[in-house]
């Protein structure tokens, strides 16, 4: 139901789309109900059809119930949405599983630098391989450890439905498991200065064998 969504390219994208769809349905019903109630009242109780307004004295419990009962229903639906939201949020954000592919990324004013573990298989060592492009295998968990060199940036790929701001002074982890090979765009979603509008980097998702051939050939992994 949510409209104009880009294609799905990660394992948790359907969960997020599904959650947005749930909110569209629930809120759509409430929106329609409220709008109909509003405009129906305007038509039904126009002066012509209702020469004298009803007299509703002080708001006792009965009168308040007219408003508190629908509000309680709104609360009920809200809590249901909140439960579903917490479930998806926990899956995507509250855990960062050990990745088959571990990459460290540094965002700086107006570009992304990626570092692969290199032949020794460990990040942060001298043999790390740097790259201006994030190249990952489809069907494997990719774990990103992100830092910022200057101001607040953000790692954002629409097709993965993944967005995570990166605050300087912190190392923030994110994970995704790409499903469809293809070329995607990583964009910075947090205003980071003059050329924020141009800050982007390519994301290449390849089938596992092609990726492994590239990685071993360039020494990106052990």
């Amino acid at each position: 139901m949510p409209h104009h969504l880009p294609e799905v390219a990660s394992t948790f994208a359907p969960a997020i789309d599904g959650h947005i769809a749930l909110i569209y349905v629930v809120c759509g019903v409430w929106l329609a109900a409220a709008e109909i109630a509003l405009f129906w009242a305007l038509f039904r109780y126009r002066r012509g059809a209702s020469p004298r307004a009803a007299w509703m004295p002080a708001d006792g419990a009965r009168q308040a119930a007219w408003v508190l009962v629908p509000a309680a229903a709104v609360l009920g639906f809200d809590l249901f949405i909140e439960w579903d939201s917490a479930r998806v949020w926990a899956h995507v954000k509250e855990r960062t599983p050990r990745g088959n592919v571990e990459v460290r990324m540094t965002a700086r004013q107006f570009g992304f630098d990626f570092h692969y573990p290199g032949p020794d298989g460990r990040l942060g060592t001298t043999d790390d391989v740097a790259s201006r492009e994030l190249r990952v295998p489809a069907g494997r968990i990719v774990r990103l450890e992100m830092e910022s060199a200057d101001v607040v940036h953000a790692f954002y790929v629409p097709e993965l439905r993944l967005k995570q701001d990166i605050v300087p002074g912190r190392r923030i982890a994110a994970w995704f498991e790409p499903t469809r090979p293809g070329r995607y765009t990583i964009a910075c979603a947090e205003l980071c200065g003059v050329a924020h509008s141009l800050m982007q980097a390519p994301l290449l998702v390849e089938p596992v064998e092609a990726w492994r051939r590239w990685a071993t050939q360039t020494g990106a992994i052990r």
């Binding site: 409430w30 409220a34 109630a37 509003l38 009242a41 305007l42 109780y45 126009r46 002066r47 209702s50 020469p51 004298r52 307004a53 009803a54 509703m56 007219w66 408003v67 508190l68 629908p70 509000a71 709104v74 609360l75 809200d78």
Partner: peptide, 19 residues
């Protein structure tokens, strides 16, 4: 929730009125 209460009450004010 409190704001939906206010909005429902505003719509309920029109209900039964002579608009």
């Amino acid at each position: 929730v409190p704001f939906s209460i206010t909005i429902f009450a505003l719509i309920a004010t029109l209900w039964g009125g002579s608009i």
